[in-house]
């Protein structure tokens, strides 16, 4: 399988935090057409990694390749890359900049240089696919969290990307809203496209993902299938994931009783 992204010895520091590498000698090869879970504690470099995929951050050293080609950072190349790679943020309020749902979804397509008619068609199509056609007339600030998340997703899907990169998109969504997002992701995956999703959830890694990347302190410490990760005692123990994912099983191996029952 040809990789969609390759990171080769990528290092990156934030300008306001010179002493620490956000990514350090980061090497990873991301297979195309998979559902990829990206696991790692806060500050391990997940968001930095994702922002590199879209060309928003440029590595200090090393290189990023998209479909075999090193990323170019001039305007035309970035426009093409950003059409191909859609980025979804943790908090939809960060992405939704317009009080009109219709205009917000139409923003990306217009930036691609599409005609107004084509952009409108894309908006309706994306809204249909995300089940939010009934929201197009509503103002953004009157939407619930789950609705905002789906509008943000529609705004990215309207650009018809090949890869979706989602930074903990399920945070602060209730399970019903999470299901709606999963349904949209699944249809995207069924078209043969690639999804990267940051998550901390064992069930998602085990049952949703087809490939897992584990980050720690700016490095990729594991790449492989969920089965390989869950049978790799060394990685699970050294990253603390065994404790995180099975804490409840380990500490409370049997059913608990209420104080009355004891």
């Amino acid at each position: 399988m040809k990789p969609v992204f390759e990171f080769r010895d990528v290092s990156f520091k934030y300008p306001n935090c010179e002493e620490k590498f956000a990514l350090q000698d980061f090497n990873v090869s991301i297979p195309a057409g998979e559902k990829i879970a990206v696991v790692g504690r806060n500050g391990s470099g997940k968001s930095t990694f994702f922002l590199h995929c879209n060309g928003l951050y440029r590595p200090w050293s090393g290189e990023v390749r998209y479909r075999g080609q090193p990323l170019a950072y001039h305007r035309a190349a970035l426009r093409q890359l950003r059409q191909q790679v859609g980025l979804i943020f943790q908090n939809p309020d960060e992405q939704l900049f317009n009080a009109s749902v219709f205009q917000d979804i139409g923003f990306g397509p217009l930036n691609l240089g599409l005609s107004k008619e084509e952009a409108k068609r894309r908006v309706h199509h994306a809204a249909e696919a995300c089940g939010i056609a009934y929201l197009l007339e509503r103002p953004t600030h009157a939407l619930s969290g789950g609705e905002k998340a789906r509008v943000a997703l529609a705004g990215v899907l309207a650009m018809q990307p090949e890869v979706l990169v989602a930074d903990e998109p399920l945070n602060s969504l209730d399970p019903w809203a999470q299901l709606a997002i999963f349904d949209i992701f699944q249809r995207f995956y069924d078209e043969g496209k690639t999804i990267l999703m940051a998550t901390h959830n064992l069930s998602i890694v085990r049952y949703w993902a087809t490939y897992v990347i584990v980050l720690e302190a700016g490095r990729a410490v594991f790449c492989g299938t969920p089965r390989e990760l869950l049978t790799n005692r060394d990685v699970l123990d050294s990253t603390g994931l065994s404790r995180v994912w099975w804490k409840v099983d380990l500490d409370y191996p049997s059913e608990q009783k209420s104080r009355d029952e004891q």
Partner: peptide
């Protein structure tokens, strides 16, 4: 902080410095 995030989010959807392109119904 939000203004900086907004810049990133807009660029991620193909905004290049200049004007916001707004689709009108």
């Amino acid at each position: 902080r939000r203004s900086q995030q907004l810049q990133i989010a807009l660029e991620a959807r193909g905004y290049e410095s200049g004007n916001l392109r707004l689709l009108t119904d």
